[in-house]
Design a protein around this nucleic acid. Structure first.
Lengths: 348, 348
DNA sequence: ATGAAAGCGCTAACAA
DNA sequence: TTGTTAGCGCTTTCAT
């Protein structure tokens, strides 16, 4: 066969002809080798190898209403959190012969809705990572298998990192270092993880009566977000800060350093996610570790479990899975010691 | 229509029935609105909106031998270079109604070959980013449109960043700062960009007779690679170093700092790519800037140009496109022999 | 301007 | 164990 551009395209028909069998036998030899005679199988495989035949997956799925493709929708490809998850999704899918469509909303809820809508009919299921939009549209959410990472949508499976225990560990660490007034530099207000962490903050406050936790607002999950937060952090007169993620934490550290504070001497800082950035900066950033690749893999497993053949292996309620976290202590946190009168008000 | 899982699937047939036209008219109303009467068009669009119909792209392409999908193959999703390119590819493709399959080789040439092979039949074309394998397999390379980013393959278009001018600018900068013995910490030996940069090194050596350029070997494009290079850098007794990319540069800086050197006072360091990492570390890293998103967009444009309808708009030889670079000077480079005030205290 | 009908590459009954 | 034959959802001639 010759395609539009003049290239040779080997289809199942060519293979069948070369092997001297019908196309059904070729199909079977690939999908269910035990169902064809060893001899035929041999000749089919030889022909495939010979002609360099590669099945067209889109066509394969057509009949069964499958696409053998899943979609992955993330807010920001250049955010290491999402590339970590993406790596897991890609790896797991690849091992199951599934292709992955990638889509990036750029943190734009409107784009997110459009992209999700575009993905739904082209895939067997979707991994929706850290949604920034409500997604009430049942024509989309109810339309196909959907796994939400770091979020919750009625009618969709979900999986997340255990933010609550993560922030608790971070607070306990700071508490043990004698910090009693701690700030939280929040992320995007639409972030589900951010909401979970604020819950953790409240819970911890209840457990440690003499601990003051100060919410310092919502900031973009970027270096600039960290910069913007510096003023509020200093004004709040806290001795330690939890930041929404590593990148915000690092932006914050740079800014307060420029303002004359030393980290960790004057301010302890804890990040989230423990991406490789935490180990890249000076001082190294204490951070709450999450296994992002596993998160991506689990999300994909959750999705694949619903796909293949009928609903034999009951789609058991796995909703609400949580992945453990642990705190990695580096150099950005230190005990609250004897300190000179705060230089807080005087930048420079 | 009801699919395997019991979900409602709206096909072109439902729309046709609802609008009281044939499926051909629905198809036309979408693909070529001028070819249907305004009245029909109205009713079709209303029905589509009403039923929430979304066309199945895989099926659409089937007839014409297209998939409306391109593939993107990168060595490492968590490398900001590739996520930058990926963002450009995703954006450009999305604007053309094209989906993107993502694949990650994890720097493994074997996996790269397999993934490329898997991609070729499922897509209309492929963006192959920074290949680490030779790819002589004509059944793959010749089989479909292929654009190589930072590489060259016979039978494929290619596009790259102008590494040569980039490294030249970096060298001139260091030369102007009176550095006369400069080291180059190379990247993966299979990297095409690395080869281009070494060419630039040789060319510059010819231009500046009193300049010594020392090649310090090949290292993985990771933080660890930078760490490993530290010993060689110090042993080479150079006053300045060019690193394969930002991440290697940063790893190197951390290591030499631990060994007691100050950057830039004792050693000037220049990175490549100017990812946001360069602005994240202390001291800020001088780096050769590339516009990664544009690189991804251009690559995709190159690919799309070959796809749509016959070869009307001649696939003119656009091979060998080069994107400009420019040097962004930060704090990791300083004049040789000038005593700088320790602006950035490394607690060492 | 529109409909009928023939596929696209492949899978999945159904026969043989 | 095999081949034959319907389609999957859609595009695209070819008639009308």
């Amino acid at each position: 066969m010759i395609d539009v551009e003049g290239r040779v395209v080997v289809t199942i028909r060519e293979v069948a002809a070369a092997a001297g069998v019908s196309i059904a036998t070729v199909s079977r030899a690939l999908a269910d080798p035990d169902k064809v005679a060893p001899g035929s199988r041999q000749r089919v495989l030889a022909a495939i190898d010979d002609l360099g035949y590669i099945p067209n997956r889109a066509a394969s799925g057509l009949r069964g209403g499958r696409t053998n493709t899943i979609g992955l929708l993330v807010p920001d490809l250049t955010n290491l959190y999402f590339s970590g998850v993406g790596r897991g999704v890609a790896a797991e899918a690849s091992e199951h012969g599934i292709s992955v469509f990638i889509a990036e909303s750029r943190e734009d809820p409107g784009a997110e809705v459009k992209l999700l809508r575009g993905l739904v009919r082209q895939t067997d299921g979707i991994v929706l990572c850290s949604p920034r939009a409500p997604h009430e549209d049942q024509a989309v959410v109810g339309a196909g298998p959907l796994v939400v990472v770091n979020g919750a949508l009625t009618g969709a499976e979900s999986i997340a990192v255990d933010d609550l225990s993560g922030i608790t560990a971070a607070l306990e660490h700071l508490f043990a270092l004698n910090h009693r007034r701690i700030g939280y530099v929040g992320g995007p207000s639409s972030s589900w993880s951010d909401a979970r962490r604020r819950e953790g903050l409240v819970a911890a406050s209840a457990r440690f009566p003499d601990l003051q936790v100060v919410s310092l607002g919502a900031y973009p999950a970027t270096v600039e977000g960290g910069h913007s937060a510096a003023g509020a952090v200093i004004a709040a007169e806290v001795s330690a800060v939890l930041a929404f993620n590593d990148i915000v934490a690092i932006g914050l550290v740079r800014s307060v350093q420029r303002m004359g504070l030393r980290v960790p001497n004057d301010l302890s800082v804890v990040g989230f996610d423990d991406t490789y950035l935490a180990d890249l900066v000076t001082p190294g950033l204490t951070s709450v570790h999450s296994d992002l690749e596993t998160l991506g893999r689990r999300a994909t497993q959750l999705l694949l479990r619903v796909l293949p053949n009928g609903r034999d292996d009951a789609p058991q309620a796995m909703t609400g899975q949580l992945l453990p976290t642990h705190l990695v202590v580096r150099d950005s946190t230190a005990p609250l010691g004897v300190r000179l009168p705060p230089r807080y008000g005087s930048p420079g």
